[in-house]
Simulated assay, not measured.
Amino acid sequence: MYMALLGRNVDAAFYDAPNVSYFSQTRGEGRTKVVGPLYEGQQYGIVFHKGSQWVEPVNEALAEMQDDGTYDEIYEKWFGETPDDE
């Protein structure tokens, strides 16, 4: 789909928002842009086996990253914008 877009075989592509944003910021930079509304937002998660010792440390690290702004910085680096507060 992205090759067709860059090759001008199609005018637009409709796909998963994080994937589209990443592509537009990297290989599509200067040649593509993200437009239009987000039709249906989905939450992503990290999966561990039940009882994993890593659940609490990862949750704490993610909460700290959100509190100190690191999450927003990483998000902006990879997707070109800061995430919307929900």
Rank of each mutant, 00 (worst) to 15 (best):
A17E: 07
Y44P: 04
K33M: 07
T32V: 02
G69L: 05
P83F: 00
E86P: 08
N19W: 14
M3F: 04
A12G: 09
Y15V: 05
D67A: 14
M3P: 09
K50I: 11
P83V: 02
Y44T: 09
R31K: 12
D85G: 07
Q66T: 04
S52Y: 07
L5T: 03
D11G: 14
K33C: 00
K50H: 08
Y15N: 15
S52K: 03
Y44A: 15
W54H: 13
A12H: 05
T32K: 06
A12R: 07
E73M: 01
L38S: 10
P18E: 05
S24K: 03
D72M: 00
Y75V: 09
G41E: 15
E56C: 01
M65F: 03
G69Q: 10
P57G: 08
Q42N: 14
I46A: 11
G80T: 04
D16K: 03
E76A: 13
F14P: 02
G30D: 05
A12T: 13
P57L: 00
D72T: 06
L38E: 10
P37H: 09
Q42A: 12
V10M: 05
T26E: 07
Y75D: 07
Y39M: 12
E40D: 11
R27Q: 13
V47T: 14
G41P: 15
E40T: 10
V55F: 03
S21V: 06
R8N: 15
L5C: 04
I74R: 15
P83G: 06
L38R: 14
G30F: 00
Y15R: 11
L5A: 05
T82M: 11
V35S: 07
Y2L: 14
G36F: 03
E64V: 00
E64I: 00
T70N: 10
Y2G: 06
K77N: 09
Y71D: 01
A12L: 03
P18A: 12
Y71E: 03
G30T: 07
G41Y: 09
K33A: 00
K50D: 05
V47I: 09
D72A: 10
F79Y: 15
E40L: 01
S52F: 09
E60C: 02
E86C: 01
A61M: 11
P83R: 01
G80E: 06
P37T: 10
Y22L: 06
G41V: 00
A4E: 12
W54P: 05
E73W: 03
N59S: 04
N59K: 14
P57H: 09
S52V: 07
D84N: 12
N9T: 12
E81H: 10
P18C: 11
R8T: 15
E56I: 11
Y71R: 02
D72V: 00
I74E: 13
K77R: 12
A61F: 10
R27T: 11
F79G: 01
Y39W: 12
T82C: 02
A61Y: 12
Q43T: 04
D16L: 07
F23L: 08
P57K: 11
V35A: 08
T70F: 13
P57E: 10
E73D: 13
A4W: 13
E81M: 01
M1G: 07
G7N: 06
V55K: 03
R27G: 13
W78P: 04
R8S: 15
V34H: 11
V34W: 05
Y15E: 15
N9V: 14
E73S: 05
N9K: 15
S21I: 06
G45I: 10
Y71I: 01
F23A: 02
Y44I: 10
V55Y: 00
R31E: 13
